[in-house]
Design a protein around this nucleic acid. Structure first.
Lengths: 169, 169
DNA sequence: CACGATTTAATTGCGCACAACTCAATGGCC
DNA sequence: GGCCATTGAGTTGTGCGCAATTAAATCGTG
């Protein structure tokens, strides 16, 4: 669990310890931001995995169902915009949801390019069983509402900044 | 068959501050925490992808090299503890790093079960070129040091709580 | 010493994420 | 109408993450 507390972190080969040591610290600090985020995301995924197993959903599949429960039938494009996912990810995922009987996919009559994704009766019914998921997740975090809100705001700002930076790259 | 909606589908709720939040809001709030984290993690990954392309590394490979640069030669097990990854992820990743000429893997003489991973000359040299990565990443976030630190603390606390919760599951 | 339990990597299988590509449908434009 | 760029899904290929399994080396205990 602890990337710190490395007993006698021996460095056999390289120890270019500059007195001011900005370089070394930078590589370490850098790891802290991105790695923390990476680790937190995977930890979250792990907790969801355990809870969603009862529903027969993976975490990304759960996200898709959340959007469908909230907005009803949607074309794949819109679904992707909500979740920031493209068809390369969604197409096989939706196929699995369809195979599980939770959604149906059908070409739009108005625009034959578009595929409408709609929850089946079974998919809609699953929503009832999903209602307890948020509570269990929130409990697992041990965070209060305010804390959650603050963290979310922080993360959203970060995402926006990163997206903007990616544009110019 | 006309597209139908179902109970609670199209409810725009801009006011989350109701005393007793109904179930609908719970499903929405829940999405906010985990989805924000998920999105931020992927956004980060995207920015790294662009920056690390010059070094010929993926983001997880970069994390591995960070650990090796810091600690020198390590067995796969220790590497996995630092990064919270198991051999199922690390083995193929290390093979690719070896194929790229950045690390070497050799069975420990003392314990034949263990495989020592050591950066090659080329791998060690890559560190110099990696020194600019943190700055570019930090710049992309638009965050100050303090902000980064606060966010990291928040995330680490979250990860610890989630890990603890996963234990009891 | 022998034998079973534990440790360490590697492998297999599945699902997600993303880039690059294909293909059909659509819309704009002359 | 005919042409062509654009749009929306799907497919392919690569890599990560994790569960489950396998195989070999090591350790512990009788």
């Amino acid at each position: 669990m602890a990337p710190e507390s490395y007993p006698g972190a021996m460095t056999p080969t390289p120890t270019p310890t500059t007195p001011a040591a900005p370089a070394d610290d930078w590589l370490r600090l850098d790891q802290q931001i991105c790695f923390s985020l990476h680790a937190a995301s995977r930890a979250f995924n792990g907790v969801y995995r355990g809870i969603l197993k009862d529903l027969g959903l993976t975490y990304p599949q759960y996200l898709v169902m959340l959007v469908l429960w909230e907005h009803g039938t949607l074309p794949v494009k819109k679904l992707g915009e909500h979740l920031r996912l493209d068809s390369g990810t969604l197409s096989p995922l939706l196929k699995r949801l369809e195979a599980a009987g939770l959604v149906r996919r059908e070409r739009s009559a108005r625009d034959e390019r578009s595929v409408e994704v709609r929850p089946t009766e079974e998919g809609a019914a699953l929503r009832e069983r999903a209602l307890e998921v948020p509570r269990r997740i929130t409990a697992a975090t041990g965070f209060g509402i305010d804390e959650v809100h603050a963290l979310r705001a922080h993360l959203d700002r970060l995402t926006a900044a990163l997206d903007a930076a990616a544009e110019n790259a």
